[in-house]
Simulated assay, not measured.
Amino acid sequence: MKSISIYRASAILLFGILLVIALYYGRIFFIPLGFAALLSMLMTPVSRKLEQWGIGRGVATLLCILIFMLFLAAIAAVIAAQLVSFSEDLPQIQKKLEQLLDTLQQWIQHKYGASPQQQITFVREQISSLSQSANKYFTTVLSGTLGLVSAFVLVVLYMFFLMWKREKFEEFTLRLVSPENRPEAQQVVNEIKQVAAQYLVGRLMSMLFLAIFYSIGLSVLGLKNAVLVSIIAVLPTIIPYVGAFVGAVFPLIVAMISGSPSMVLPTFAILVAAQVIDNNIIEPLVMGSKLNLSPIFTIIAIVLGEMIWGIPGMILFEPLFAVVRIVSQHVQKLHPYGFLLQNEVEDPKWVDKLKGLFGKG
């Protein structure tokens, strides 16, 4: 067995370090481009359908972007309508919150001997210290909002050009390889487009199911503003694994404040039941094994994404790792890496039967 050259190992390590540095310092450029690439692959079938109806490429691309923006506007409208209803219940929620704070003060006094006045003094001191840096926080929030708006504009612009001239970018990719390898390169490109579109569709279908399940369950439970609470709880689930835990916090707090302590446990049961059904039935059916990533590398992708790109990285790095797996499985020297990234967990037999039923349907 030949030993690995120290120079080759050093070159691989140096390449990895430089890649991470480039991704970190170039995140302002790469994050909008990454989202635009995913969304372009998702909307390309719609654009092709419109073109088959006789609509020009440019107009079809603009219509796809309009559909995407209308989808976002619809979500914002639903949230705004629910916020109006939520604002009507604010006096009652405030009264309930004051009762909970009074109970908490009594518990702290009993446990630690701090009187309510001492607790109020402590809180005021903390608020005063925070207010001294209010300008700094305001500037940070303002710059973050402006950055978000500019990033959204970039995503829309990138989407337009990636969809409008998609054949050119595909041809460029094929020209990077020798003519005899172009059929396999074309297969790689097709697989990447399919995985990206399937990932977004599957994630959106999963979020839609959770929103409906949460809304019905919390409404039956009697929780006020169940639709708004469900939407806010579902939005973080676009981040795999971690998002479910983050999203569960808000319904539990609302159940405690606007409902009663006895509603917390049923609310928790609804959240857990929805996640169990989603993870074991919905996601395997709508996403299948398209990403085909090992669970441990899915978690690694989320952690690395957060370290390098923050929250956008937690969303983008999972399909990015899937792209690396696809390329590795089609390049002879990278086969071991493709094998390492590949999912080794098989779906239960009953899930395969369900897939067969849906496929026949």
Rank of each mutant, 00 (worst) to 15 (best):
A74G: 07
L38A: 07
L100N: 03
T61L: 04
Y25A: 10
G56S: 13
L104A: 12
L70V: 10
Y7T: 13
R57N: 05
G259H: 07
P251Y: 00
T237A: 09
K355L: 12
I326W: 03
Q94R: 15
V46K: 10
V323K: 05
N181M: 11
S85V: 08
I282P: 01
S294V: 00
T121L: 12
I93Y: 10
A197F: 00
S87G: 04
Y137P: 02
E98P: 00
W164V: 03
K224S: 15
Y199H: 11
S10W: 04
V59R: 10
K95G: 09
Q132F: 14
A37E: 05
I239H: 01
W164Q: 14
F297A: 07
R203M: 13
L265F: 08
L221I: 02
H110E: 15
L252R: 01
A269D: 06
M207E: 03
R203Y: 02
Q119S: 02
Q126R: 15
Y137M: 14
V254D: 03
Q186R: 13
T103P: 00
A77C: 02
E51M: 05
S47L: 09
V254H: 10
Q82L: 02
I120R: 15
S294A: 08
L162A: 02
R175Q: 15
F71W: 11
R182D: 11
I282Y: 01
L62C: 07
T140M: 09
V195N: 11
I239R: 05
A74Y: 04
M287F: 01
L252E: 01
L18A: 14
H335R: 14
G361R: 12
I277T: 12
M314H: 08
M263P: 02
N279L: 09
F169I: 05
I65L: 14
L63A: 10
G305M: 09
A211R: 00
Q94E: 15
G361W: 11
P236F: 07
Q118I: 09
S219T: 12
K165V: 00
Y241S: 14
V177E: 11
N135G: 15
Q117F: 01
N343P: 00
A248C: 03
Y7E: 15
D352C: 12
L293H: 06
K2V: 06
P348W: 05
A134R: 13
V201M: 09
V177W: 10
D352S: 14
L66V: 03
L174K: 14
C64Q: 13
L14G: 13
F35M: 10
S85E: 15
I277A: 14
V324E: 03
I192R: 06
A244T: 08
M163Q: 02
F321A: 04
V156Q: 07
E191A: 11
V323L: 13
L18K: 06
F339V: 06
